[in-house]
């Protein structure tokens, strides 16, 4: 079995790389694939917190690289989903502890046992980024509909294109706020895709549930009512090759739909 190694990157910090990794990983595992998540953000690890596995980590990526333990010992199994494993980063070291060749060989080993190897990339384009993309053959570029994030994503795509091993890269637009798009205060997803001229793999609406899910250590895909959770589940399906239509996030739902109706009755432009 040869699994797919996918790196999740963005260039800019705070756009949701780690959240995306945790949720796509969980969604893929829920769909029956075996998944391993690698946190390469050494020294600033967060992925374990988002998955609620912080208290289970004994050995880390750095321990594996420095041969203090075997690779399999360092894999932390998820609480709920036995298909999902985490290879955590060390908190007490920095990016220089692991180099590109070492991560590449770890990815190759994991590839044999897992369907998907998802690499959570640190922010920036330095050493940490170069290490993270070293083992990957595919990439997901996370961005938000903001000029700064889009500019950074453009730079990242340039770097990914320059790397031969990366066969394909897809764009994921995170934290889209339909209301702001409608009032022309935010770039639309179409604008972002046009600027970056890159295939789209998902649109994730802004969702306050993300905050609570992060604090609880419970990925939002486990919440079936959450719009962001649904969107991430769809992304996971698209990664597997299913043809899933994009959620129409512009369509108002619930109270918003009611408001639109009232407004139209009163003759106010929505």
């Amino acid at each position: 079995m040869t699994g797919r190694v996918i790196v999740i990157t963005s260039g800019k910090g705070g756009v949701g790389k780690t959240t995306t990794s945790a949720n796509i990983g969980t969604a893929l595992a829920k769909g029956g694939s075996s998944v391993v998540l690698i946190d390469t953000d050494i020294g600033l690890r967060n992925l374990d917190l988002l998955l609620g596995l912080e208290n289970r980590i004994v050995y880390t990526l750095v321990d594996v690289v420095e041969e203090r333990c075997k690779l399999k010992q360092a894999l932390v199994k998820d609480k709920k989903n036995p298909n999902l494993c985490l290879l955590a980063a060390a908190q007490t070291r920095d990016k220089s502890a692991v180099d590109a060749d070492q991560l590449k060989s770890i990815c190759e080993q994991l590839q044999e046992d897992f369907d998907f190897v998802l690499v959570d990339c640190p922010a920036g384009i330095e050493e940490g980024f170069k290490t993270a993309i070293s083992g990957a053959s595919e990439a997901i570029v996370v961005t938000t509909p903001e000029m700064s994030a889009v500019r950074d994503a453009d730079r990242i795509i340039g770097l990914l294109e320059a790397k031969e091993e990366i066969k394909s890269y897809k764009l994921l637009v995170n934290r889209v706020r339909p209301n702001l798009v409608k009032s022309n205060d935010m770039m639309s997803v179409d604008d972002v895709v046009e600027i970056l001229s890159c295939d789209l793999i998902g649109i994730i609406p802004e969702d306050t549930g993300i905050i609570t899910s992060t604090n609880r250590g419970e990925p939002i895909v486990n919440d079936e009512n959450s719009p962001a959770g649904k969107a991430y589940t769809n992304v996971a399906k698209r990664i597997k090759g299913e043809d899933v239509p994009f959620l129409d996030i512009n369509e108002p739902k619930g109270f918003d739909a009611f408001l639109v109706k009232v407004k139209s009755l009163l003759g106010i432009k929505a």
């Binding site: 333990c69 075997k70 010992q73 199994k77 036995p82 046992d113």
Partner: peptide, 22 residues
């Protein structure tokens, strides 16, 4: 501590191994 942990028997089913180890 490593040596004590590596002494766990390695079965062909790695997932089980991880579980028992944990």
């Amino acid at each position: 501590t490593d040596s004590s942990m590596t002494s766990h028997t390695e079965s062909e089913d790695e997932k089980k191994e991880i579980q028992t180890e944990l």
